[in-house]
């Protein structure tokens, strides 16, 4: 299998049709990243498409050795930010938290309600925090790559992540207090 770097080199050497291979390789994970940024399906599909087109147009700006994956996430994150700025939506965290607090004490919050709560909590993080959290937790990027994708320093990516995780823990506390603390990622 061709590496990303080989494919990029081949595209820039004229085999432009190989961009489809790169697009196919990353379209699904970037789509999920965009959904995690609280875009609905149609919005994520639009932003994914504009990100791929942007990546193609700017392919020659990848610096030597830079990994396509991280670079592409940078583009997707920027496109998502531009999109959200154009269509600002407020998410009612309080409503969902209150809804979670209605749950009977001692009763584990069901997975569906927990997912809804997490979605709203993620939506209430700052955009930088949300980006860092998703890249780190869902995409499992090391902090060095998270920093590169977000255009921030390595240390700053850690600070933002720490603050975001603490914030999420605080917001989700009412639900977490009753949910099984052995809850494990599937």
């Amino acid at each position: 299998m061709r590496t990303d770097k080989q494919l990029v080199d081949e595209i820039l050497a004229g085999a432009t049709e190989k961009f489809s291979v790169l697009a196919e390789r990353y379209q699904q994970q970037v789509y999920r990243f965009l959904r995690g940024m609280n875009l609905d399906h149609d919005e994520a599909a639009d932003v994914l498409q504009s990100s791929l087109i942007r990546a193609y147009e700017k392919l020659d700006t990848i610096r030597g050795g830079e990994r396509f994956r991280v670079w592409f996430y940078t583009i997707a994150a920027n496109q998502a930010r531009n999109y959200m700025r154009r269509s600002r939506r407020d998410v009612a965290l309080d409503d969902v938290v209150l809804s979670a607090e209605d749950q009977n004490p001692g009763e584990a919050l069901d997975r569906e309600r927990m997912a809804a709560l997490v979605a709203v909590a993620l939506g209430n993080l700052s955009e930088d925090q949300r980006k860092v959290v998703l890249l780190r937790i869902y995409q499992e990027m090391p902090f060095s790559e998270v920093a590169q994708a977000c255009g921030i320093s390595h240390g700053n990516s850690k600070v933002i992540f720490h603050r975001a995780l603490k914030t999420l823990a605080r917001w989700l506390a009412p639900a977490m207090g009753r949910m099984d603390l052995d809850y494990k990622e599937r």
């Binding site: 489809s20 697009a23 196919e24 379209q27 699904q28 789509y31 999920r32 990243f33 959904r35 995690g36 399906h41 599909a45 994914l48 498409q49 791929l52 997975r111 927990m114 997912a115 997490v118 979605a119 993620l122 959290v133 998703l134 937790i137 869902y138 995780l165 999420l168 823990a169 989700l172 506390a173 977490m176 949910m179 099984d180 603390l181 052995d182 809850y183 494990k184 990622e185 599937r186």
Partner: peptide, 28 residues
Amino acid sequence: RLRAVRAAVADRVRDLAPPDESFWKANL
């Protein structure tokens, strides 16, 4: 608790219903 928050965030993204194959093909 922190681990549970982390797991819940990961699950939230993974649990999103993926579009079907025709979507990916049309996108490409």
